[in-house]
Simulated assay, not measured.
Amino acid sequence: MYYSTTYLSPVGLLTLACDGESLLGLWIAGQKYHGDTILEAMVEKDNIPVFKATKNWLEKYFAGKQPAISELPLAPIGGEFRQQIWNILTEIPYGKVITYGDIAKKMAVKMNKQSMSSQAVGGAVGHNPISIIIPCHRVVGANGSLTGYAGGIATKIKLLELEGADMSSLFIPKKGTAL
């Protein structure tokens, strides 16, 4: 059985999903792929310990503190490739950015391959079911483009600014698939 609750954040209404033990999802209202990893109906239930812990984590995060991802039991649903990409995302330091190409290089090493497609990485990053906590907003294009955030570019900027990221070399693309 899957459960859901909501949390009103500075970036909009968030929907949280769990299995009673672990956090399975966190989606921003209107986000692309909202809830797509939970294939069954979710029962709304607010008083589950993992939801309380997640809301406390979010309170700290939006207050400008740096709560550790390891404080929460995360169990995003996805295949092995996506799981590995999401694991790499959890290693991106607070307030820092990394490119899709950098992640592709890390994955190529993990998979003992010469190279890895940045597009494949982008697909996995875009389908991250635990937004904000698994920090896919910290991934940018090779040229500094703020592209590719399923929660929207304005939200990505808000989150990076909250974290004090150096925005001087980043820009909003004039066109693209993730605008």
Score class of each variant (00 low, 15 high):
residue 80 E to L: 13
residue 151 G to P: 03
residue 26 L to P: 07
residue 65 K to Q: 15
residue 105 K to M: 12
residue 86 W to T: 02
residue 68 A to W: 00
residue 154 A to H: 12
residue 58 L to I: 08
residue 174 K to M: 03
residue 151 G to T: 07
residue 93 P to T: 06
residue 99 T to Y: 10
residue 84 Q to T: 12
residue 176 G to N: 05
residue 121 V to M: 08
residue 166 D to L: 04
residue 49 P to E: 09
residue 48 I to S: 02
residue 11 V to A: 02
residue 18 C to P: 01
residue 64 G to W: 07
residue 78 G to M: 04
residue 29 A to Q: 15
residue 151 G to A: 14
residue 16 L to R: 08
residue 164 G to I: 09
residue 29 A to N: 11
residue 148 G to K: 11
residue 34 H to M: 12
residue 121 V to T: 15
residue 3 Y to V: 01
residue 134 I to C: 07
residue 30 G to V: 09
residue 114 Q to R: 13
residue 86 W to S: 10
residue 142 A to N: 14
residue 135 P to S: 12
residue 92 I to W: 03
residue 176 G to M: 02
residue 158 K to V: 00
residue 108 A to D: 09
residue 56 N to Q: 15
residue 165 A to L: 07
residue 19 D to E: 11
residue 142 A to L: 13
residue 88 I to S: 02
residue 54 T to F: 05
residue 165 A to I: 06
residue 176 G to L: 02
residue 136 C to G: 15
residue 121 V to G: 09
residue 66 Q to L: 01
residue 53 A to M: 13
residue 58 L to N: 08
residue 26 L to W: 01
residue 44 E to M: 10
residue 128 N to E: 07
residue 134 I to P: 02
residue 60 K to Y: 08
residue 114 Q to L: 14
residue 21 E to W: 00
residue 160 L to E: 10
residue 45 K to W: 05
residue 115 S to C: 03
residue 65 K to I: 00
residue 85 I to D: 01
residue 91 E to W: 07
residue 78 G to V: 07
residue 135 P to W: 10
residue 151 G to Q: 03
residue 12 G to H: 08
residue 178 A to D: 14
residue 131 S to P: 00
residue 149 Y to E: 05
residue 73 P to I: 04
residue 154 A to K: 15
residue 129 P to Q: 03
residue 5 T to L: 07
residue 38 I to E: 06
residue 62 F to I: 01
residue 24 L to M: 12
residue 150 A to G: 10
residue 16 L to C: 05
residue 161 E to F: 00
residue 27 W to M: 02
residue 109 V to H: 12
residue 59 E to F: 08
residue 152 G to Y: 06
residue 118 S to G: 13
residue 163 E to T: 05
residue 37 T to E: 11
residue 39 L to I: 11
residue 48 I to Y: 05
residue 38 I to A: 09
residue 110 K to L: 14
residue 19 D to N: 15
residue 67 P to I: 03
residue 44 E to V: 13
residue 81 F to I: 10
residue 157 I to S: 05
residue 118 S to I: 04
residue 21 E to A: 13
residue 166 D to T: 11
residue 57 W to C: 08
residue 88 I to F: 14
residue 151 G to Y: 08
residue 90 T to I: 02
residue 152 G to R: 01
residue 12 G to C: 12
residue 6 T to R: 13
residue 103 I to A: 05
residue 108 A to M: 08
residue 56 N to D: 15
residue 21 E to C: 01
residue 164 G to C: 06
residue 3 Y to T: 00
residue 101 G to W: 09
residue 114 Q to D: 15
residue 147 T to P: 00
residue 68 A to M: 11
residue 15 T to S: 14
residue 36 D to T: 13
residue 176 G to A: 04
residue 163 E to G: 04
residue 50 V to R: 08
residue 28 I to E: 07
residue 37 T to K: 14
residue 88 I to A: 07
residue 140 V to H: 01
residue 39 L to E: 12
residue 77 I to T: 08
residue 91 E to P: 01
residue 11 V to D: 05
residue 98 I to V: 15
residue 159 L to Y: 03
residue 85 I to Q: 02
residue 92 I to S: 03
residue 138 R to S: 12
